[in-house]
């Protein structure tokens, strides 16, 4: 039991670090799209670690499956929403503002 608790503490603390990083990025990064990087990547990883940590406290397999489902849904939603918000936030596509790079 103690080993399970140790795993939970370690994983939840790691998750918290990523949430701190997500908030730090949201507050510190200079432009909207950089902030979006911080939110979608750091926070989803944080949620993954916390869900995994919580899974070590569950007593039945179905709850663990449901935790996995929560994380997958949240991750999938965040990844696709991030792309759409990123697109919606662009008034003009970047090449119109003269920022074209090679491709």
């Amino acid at each position: 039991m103690i080993a399970l608790d140790v795993m939970t503490v370690l994983l939840v603390c790691t998750g918290l670090v990523f949430f701190v990083a997500g908030t730090a990025g949201l507050l510190r990064f200079p432009d909207f799209h950089s902030r979006l990087h911080a939110l979608t990547k750091a926070d989803n990883l944080g949620l993954g670690f916390i869900a995994l940590g919580v899974a070590f406290q569950m007593t039945d397999a179905w709850s663990v499956a449901k935790l996995a489902l929560v994380w997958m849904l949240a991750g999938l939603a965040a990844a696709s929403v991030a792309q759409l918000v990123a697109r919606a936030a662009l008034d003009r596509l970047p090449d119109e503002s003269g920022g074209e790079h090679k491709g």
Partner: peptide, 15 residues
């Protein structure tokens, strides 16, 4: 997107 943070964070808090 800051409001989205409440979504992800809220899910983690609920778990």
């Amino acid at each position: 997107i800051s409001a989205q943070l409440i979504g992800t964070g809220g899910v983690a808090i609920a778990l």
